[in-house]
Simulated scan of single mutants.
Amino acid sequence: MATYVWDYRREYENERADILDAVDTVFRSGRLILGESVRGFEEEFARYHGVRHCVGVDNGTNAVKLGLQALGVGPGDEVVTVSNTAAPTVLAIDAVGAVPVFVDVDPATYLMDPRQVEDAVTERTRCIVPVHLYGQMADLAALMETAGRHGLRILEDCAQAHGARREGRLAGTTGDAGAFSFYPTKVLGAYGDAGAVITSDGTAEGHLRRLRYYGMEDRYYVVRTPGHNARLDEVHAEILRRKLRRLDDYIAARRAVARRYAEGLGGTGLVLPETAPGNEHVFYVYVVRHPERDRILEALREHGFEFNISYPWPVHTMTGFAHLGYGTGDFPVTEAAAREIFSLPMYPSLPQGLQDKVIAVLREILARG
């Protein structure tokens, strides 16, 4: 059965010469680990964001984990976040020994509801991790006010928001640090796992560099624990350097796809994405909503379409997080969304003909009721 949610192959054909040259550049460099490609990407990604530092790591989960550790979050601390996210956000909090504390989300944008964060703060709270979900940013102005009142750190989870802005500021540049994933499907994606943390905090940057490299500053000498083997690979870094130059083009293409969906699916009964005031959406995914989601997905399968749900199970309902003590009914907005949302195909090289077919099939299914 065909799956059309994401496909990199058309983009690869368009960029093949540059991607292969990136690989060849690394292989001919004589340095395969933490060489010029990693340094170059870190400098260029930091410059793109207007921050002082970028530290490349091996994946987005470790970007959150090491970001938390670099900000001083550890065992017994509480970290306020959302259940409407990919599980790795919460796994990273758990991995540093901290306790995830969930709040519900805004029903229109599915982003962290800042009004609930204040009530979630206790004397053990150390950090807030807002998730910039689906391609737009949480309300950082409100969250910064809460963090300031309580002396909390903010680590932005930017895995789905490369290049997104709120009130003119890029994702990852308002809080103490921003964690990014470059998983292949992302707005800026590598050809495998990769990640990074950006910050203007020099102390946090130093911790990050040690954390990703066994706790070492010099080879073979550990100066601080914990330490990890969490280095960004040279090949992925060089590919990301090339693709970073095209990031704004990728975003423009995604927005064009989103506009065609909005034009083609308006008035059908689908709840289409809503951009929060002040946000510049980059449409990592195009999430729609309908109370008869499962019927619609089954009808789509009959037409050869298999679409994704981001996300079908709120984290607090998963058995792997039962130890946190939450249960069904605790976060009704998140749970209602999980029953009704699904994602339409969204990537820069999505053929317009395929998108037109998706729109036509959806309109037919929705018209049948």
Rank of each mutant, 00 (worst) to 15 (best):
Y284P: 06
L133C: 03
R52P: 06
D201E: 11
A63N: 14
F41T: 05
N308L: 08
C54I: 09
A256Q: 12
A108F: 03
W6P: 02
D356L: 07
R293V: 00
A46Q: 05
R166K: 04
V38Y: 12
N279P: 02
A237N: 13
R301I: 03
Q136M: 15
H49S: 03
G76H: 13
L111W: 04
A138T: 08
R295N: 02
C54W: 12
V285M: 04
V23I: 15
R231Y: 08
E167F: 07
R31M: 09
D176I: 01
D294S: 12
A98K: 09
T122K: 11
Y4D: 03
W313N: 04
R149E: 04
P226T: 14
G192L: 00
G35F: 06
V55L: 10
G30T: 11
V64C: 05
R153K: 15
D94Y: 08
T61Q: 12
G325P: 05
L143S: 11
N14L: 08
S310N: 07
P345D: 02
L247T: 10
L240D: 10
R241I: 01
N59D: 13
H303S: 13
E11N: 05
V38I: 07
R219T: 10
P351Y: 10
A177W: 07
I198T: 14
L265Q: 00
S200G: 09
G178Y: 09
A237C: 11
G148H: 15
G227I: 11
L350V: 15
K186D: 07
C54H: 12
L272P: 00
E11T: 11
R260W: 00
N59F: 13
G195A: 06
H303F: 07
E118W: 04
G206Y: 05
D77K: 05
F180H: 03
V333F: 06
T109F: 13
H303M: 07
E335R: 10
F102A: 08
G206N: 14
V103P: 09
G151E: 03
T125R: 01
V117M: 02
R368V: 01
G353N: 00
F180Q: 03
V358H: 00
S200F: 14
Y326T: 09
V57M: 08
R242A: 04
V96G: 11
R368Q: 00
H53T: 04
A367W: 07
E302D: 11
Q69P: 08
G135R: 09
H162W: 14
T199H: 04
V361L: 00
E292H: 00
E205Q: 02
T275C: 12
R255W: 13
G329A: 12
